[in-house]
Design a protein around this nucleic acid. Structure first.
Length: 883
RNA sequence: GGGCGUUUAGCUCAGUUGGUUAGAGCGGCUCGUUUACACCGAGUAGGCCGGGGGUUCGAAUCCCUCAACGCCCACCA
């Protein structure tokens, strides 16, 4: 190998772009070029409202680590990339920009077509930046399948679904009180309402001198539209009035107020009497509907208009005033007439628009809704029930179609949300979005995937809630509604990851759409990650100006360092903090790996890479030790990666890479190589371990590993290299051969101790048998006979003790015992008879630090299969062969 | 009002089903090294695992309770 010119430090900048280009060119991003069982992961499409932030970097790392791992494990891995047009968010952003440029009312100023063009321009710009950023992160997405929620294919899917739901009676047009943003001039769904705490004034007043009692309100101006007064059914103070109607003159308005009884009224709040304004309060509207259903139409008066100003119905004195102006005026009038009883500051929780920021008005309007409680024709279930079932027991009750949420506590949150779910208002009055596929001509209504034949039809001006199209993402990206090969191959998708903040917005809608439309769950597993915060624990936000561009971080350090820093020390569902020191530390690790490789590549002689384990000739105990550690590492990594425990995986890898391989074996290898008889075998092991390490690191740190790999094998890309897999066999416990091997381990440890008087990072020598059965105990007793065995009693009352076989420590576990109590008795008996004791453990001991300063070998390759009543040990074949 | 999360070393956080003397990174201190790596190495200090109670041979881990902080949901006008 001619590798003498490898630079001392890893300079990411000079490798990353070329490597990404090579990956792209290789075609391995495209699963069509891969074999195996499909593994599908749909990228949560970033909004085209701007550039990617660190939160996206986190997502990209998680997704890409998973997809790279699966690809290396021989799966037909698809990571399908895309972006989201983000209807309201994008239009709001563009309008905000325009307003900042001095255009007061962009919609009026430009008109529909021109404004849409401006938004399109903005979004295309933003989109191309986003795609570049994703590539910089190293994300191995299949660009040939790139999708956009607003492109032709996705729009096709959207209208198709709309029409189906319409025909099934699930989508309907209704007149009711909805959430309205005056600033945005559009509706919002319940989920888009953000509640904020604020101080408000609570006014206690009387409608008129004729009215028998006082009521309390924070919004006196809406009282102009009151049609009833509600009290609690069991409130004796007002019992005599229930059912009576009072005609009052309130601020120049003639109101007819019926006193009604409703459970919702809190008798302890205010005066215990509530003025009912059905047109401007969701809860009052509910009371109104309830009364109506009972045959009592109390009426509904809209006094606030869509423009945020008082309507004609508010009366001559108020018409045209803003809500605030009207409020003041009502207060003054009440004070003048002596009807105001008191004014008091209270804490209030008001709903605001998540995108436009203004306080949401409740206004009765005609809008489009998805009915979540209606029975779906032919299914005998409602959408709500479908949504619940998929997570609870599996779609159609099929356990194989059950969605698994990680961590599972979010399942509870999800159920709670579903229980409170009301019909979903899907029509928006903004322009940027999928147009509702409904046309009108006079009284005629037409709903279809394309415009109806004939003259005079006018399409509904409204657009769809952006989450309507996002809900279709897992299958609209695969060519649905056409029965494409992609759709058949890759759906349901295998895995999904998202932040908890969009659980309801997105995950819930995907489940709704997928189960209803295609009768499949959208994905098997959902991994929920937390939010990335800044050093002080604050959210990254424009207003705080604490945003960090991932590209800058990558340029300063490396994509690999950023990736590692984002996944290490992080647990699913919990927020994590981002700070530069963490990336610095990660960069050190990246460089360490680089230099380990540099040492191996520049010192070893002619060595074939890709050697089989059996071709290695481990001679010294150090050789055996490092290989054993490697095999153990491999087993742990496989589990961690499969379970998306990236943090644990990276921690174990770091430990091995730095602590075991670099700090110990590399140093020993220098001594061993000085001995000519050991040189060749040592070199082979160095290369063997290195190439395994590169594979293991690759999903998390793809660039640096690929860069090094090139020196090892220029003919193949590491990204397409098979993850070296472990071979496990079961061996009978009482096997004589097994016993001999264990004895040899102990002997080897002893030899190591003799060979090197001082060995770095000395731990203890442990022969660990986890989840043992009775035979294990026998075996360890025999094993302890290697050398002068005495079992030390550590806990007089307990059934544990450390076993010391001469100078080698031995441990046994009782945990998996068939009859634990029986064994305890036996041990106690032993203690009486021999004074010996046996320690019982059930934990991996590889990290355990012992007081013994002797050199260490950790062999925990044997683990009993707990579920296996036969109680056989699983041992690692390679390890056995080696020892 | 309901639900959830967090509380572990100076800082940021791991700790998988309860298991020997609780770990890492960063930071601190001591010493060393520049022929893989100063983006280094060898050491070292630093923790009643938020408080209290319980279960167990054994608890950071399970149960109860209290406290602080944070988040989500909700129709207190």
């Amino acid at each position: 190998m001619d590798n003498q010119d490898i630079p001392k430090a890893y300079e990411a900048k000079s490798y990353e772009d070329d490597i990404y280009a090579a990956w792209e060119k290789s075609g391995f991003f495209n699963p069509d070029n891969l074999k195996g069982e499909p593994f599908t992961l749909m990228m949560p499409p970033p909004n085209v409202t701007g550039v990617l932030h660190l939160g996206h970097a986190l997502e990209n790392t998680i997704m890409d680590s998973m997809i790279r791992y699966q690809r290396m494990r021989g799966r037909k891995a698809l990571l399908l990339p895309g972006t989201d047009h983000a209807a309201v968010a994008t239009q709001a952003r563009v309008e905000k920009n325009l307003i900042a440029e001095g255009i007061k009312n962009p919609r009026e100023h430009f008109g529909r077509e021109k404004l849409l063009e401006l938004i399109r321009e903005f979004s295309e710009n933003s989109k191309s930046t986003i795609l570049k950023q994703i590539k910089k992160m190293g994300t191995s997405a299949d660009w040939s399948r790139l999708a956009y929620t607003f492109d032709k294919d996705r729009s096709h899917a959207v209208t198709e679904v709309f029409v189906r739901m319409y025909n099934d009676g699930l989508i309907y047009r209704g007149h009711r009180v909805v959430n309205w943003s005056v600033r945005g001039q559009s509706t919002l769904s319940d989920d888009e309402v953000v509640h904020v705490d604020r101080k408000a004034k609570l006014y206690t007043f009387n409608y008129s001198k004729d009215f028998p009692f006082t009521i309390a309100t924070t919004r006196p101006e809406t009282k102009l539209g009151d049609t009833a007064v509600a009290v609690h059914p069991s409130d004796e103070r007002y019992a005599e009035f229930v059912g009576k109607t009072f005609e009052v003159e309130f601020c120049g308005n003639n109101l007819s107020l019926t006193v009604i009884a409703d459970e919702h009224v809190d008798p302890k709040f205010g005066t215990g009497a509530l003025g009912v304004t059905p047109a401007h309060s969701p809860i009052d509207y509910q009371m109104y509907e309830k009364q109506k259903a009972a045959g009592n139409d109390i009426g509904l008066i809209q006094v606030v208009g869509a423009d945020g100003k008082m309507t004609e119905r508010a009366g001559e004195d108020f018409k045209g005033l803003t809500v605030e102006e009207a409020r003041e005026k009502v207060v003054v009038m009440l004070q003048e007439k002596g009807l105001m009883v008191s004014e008091e500051e209270i804490d209030q929780n008001v709903g605001t628009s998540d995108r436009f920021g203004d306080i949401v008005e409740a206004i009765p309007m005609t809008q489009w809704f998805v009915g979540v409680n209606k029975e779906i024709p032919g299914k005998g279930k409602s959408l709500k029930e479908l949504m619940k079932q998929a997570v609870e027991v599996g779609h159609n009750g099929d356990a194989d179609q059950k969605i698994n949420i990680i961590p599972d506590r979010f399942e509870g949150t999800y159920y709670g949300w579903i229980d409170n779910l009301r019909d979903w208002c899907i029509s928006r009055q903004i322009w940027w979005g999928h147009r509702i596929p409904v046309w009108y001509k006079g009284e005629e209504v037409f709903c279809g995937t394309s415009a109806p034949e004939g003259e005079g039809w006018k399409q509904d001006p409204d657009t769809l809630d952006t989450w309507f199209s996002s809900g279709l993402w897992t299958f609209s990206t695969l060519g649905w509604p056409d029965e494409t090969p992609d759709f058949k191959t890759f759906h349901p998708t295998t895995w999904m990851q998202m932040g908890y903040e969009i659980l309801f917005f997105w995950m819930a809608r995907m489940i709704l759409m997928s189960t209803y439309v295609i009768d499949q769950i959208p994905f098997k597993d959902v991994y929920i990650h937390g939010m990335l915060r800044d050093k002080n624990g604050q959210k990254f936000s424009k207003s705080l100006n604490n945003g960090i561009d991932p590209i800058e971080v990558i340029e300063k350090y490396s994509a690999d360092a950023l990736r590692y820093s984002l996944v290490s020390g992080v647990t699913p569902g919990n927020d994590s903090k981002f700070y530069e020191e963490k990336v610095e530390a990660a960069q050190r690790l990246v460089n360490k790996l680089w230099n380990i490789s540099r040492y191996v590549l520049t010192t070893v002689g002619e060595v074939n890479h890709g050697a089989a384990y059996s071709e290695l000739k481990p001679t010294t105990v150090a050789d055996k030790w490092i290989l054993t550690e490697l095999v153990n590492l491999e087993a742990q990594l496989a589990t961690h990666m499969q379970n998306a425990e990236f943090s644990q995986a990276s921690e174990k890898l770091r430990e091995f890479t730095w602590g075991a391989f670099a700090d110990w074996y590399l140093e020993i290898s220098k001594m061993q190589r000085a001995d000519e008889s050991l040189q060749k075998s040592t070199d082979a092991i160095l290369v063997y371990v290195l190439e395994h390490l590169l594979s293991y690191w690759h999903p998390i740190m793809p660039f640096v590993t690929e860069a090094i790999w090139k020196h090892l094998d220029a003919s193949e890309l590491l990204m397409a290299h098979n993850w070296p897999s472990m071979h496990m066999v079961q061996v009978d416990l009482d096997s004589k051969a097994r016993m001999d091997e264990l004895k040899e381990v102990v002997t080897s440890i002893r030899a190591l101790r003799a060979q090197y008087q001082v060995v770095p990072k000395a731990k203890v020598d442990v022969v660990f048998v986890g989840g043992a059965v009775e035979q294990d105990v026998e075996m360890i007793r025999t094993l302890a006979g290697v050398g002068a065995a005495t079992f030390e009693k550590t806990k007089p009352e307990g059934d544990y003790a450390a076993g010391v076989a001469g100078d080698v420590q031995v441990f046994v576990s009782l945990e998996g015992l068939v009859d634990k109590d029986k064994e305890r008795e036996r041990l106690k008996q032993d203690e009486k008879e021999t004074g010996e004791y046996i320690v019982v453990l059930d934990k991996k001991l590889s990290n355990t630090e012992f007081t013994n300063k002797a050199p260490v070998s950790v062999v925990d390759g044997m683990r009993a299969k707990k579920t296996d009543a036969e109680a056989r040990l699983i041992v690692i074949k390679d390890q056995l062969t080696a020892l």
